[in-house]
């Protein structure tokens, strides 16, 4: 049993989890009742999906500098995602899109 075996095993788990969170984010985007709840699904689930993919890819690349570059890419997506999320939520509030509160379910 070699070291590579462990690295590959962890990578499989990370990739599977990554795929799950990307799918769950899209399912939330389709199922959730209003623009605000959909934003929750998108911002959090997809960023986690990308983070897990980046972790798995870093393990597979076997290079510190590539791992750092992937981490940098992810950090940019997080900062951009959080900012975009605020801007979109804010513009939805400004254009008076009413948040869903569970009435009429």
């Amino acid at each position: 049993m070699s070291w590579q075996w462990v690295v590959d095993g962890v990578s499989y788990v990370l990739f599977a989890a990554s795929g799950f969170f990307f799918l769950a984010g899209s399912v939330g985007l389709v199922r959730f009742p209003d623009v605000y709840t959909r934003l929750h699904a998108l911002t959090k689930s997809d960023n986690l999906g990308l983070g897990l993919a980046v972790a798995g890819l870093s393990l597979q690349s076997g290079s510190w500098i590539v791992a750092l570059k992937l981490l940098l890419t992810w950090m940019i997506v997080i900062v951009a995602g959080a900012t975009a999320c605020y801007l979109v939520a804010n513009s939805a509030r400004d254009s008076e899109i009413e948040p869903w509160t569970g009435e009429g379910r």
Binding site: F22, L29, R38, L42, D46, L57, T73, V77, V88, I97
Partner: peptide, 23 residues
């Protein structure tokens, strides 16, 4: 139904696009 909802899909493509390119 609103333009903002459609924008969410564009944001989804952004994150997914990055992930897909890295994979």
């Amino acid at each position: 139904p609103t333009g903002t909802d459609r924008m969410l899909s564009a944001m989804l493509f952004g994150t997914s696009g990055v992930a897909l390119t890295l994979v």
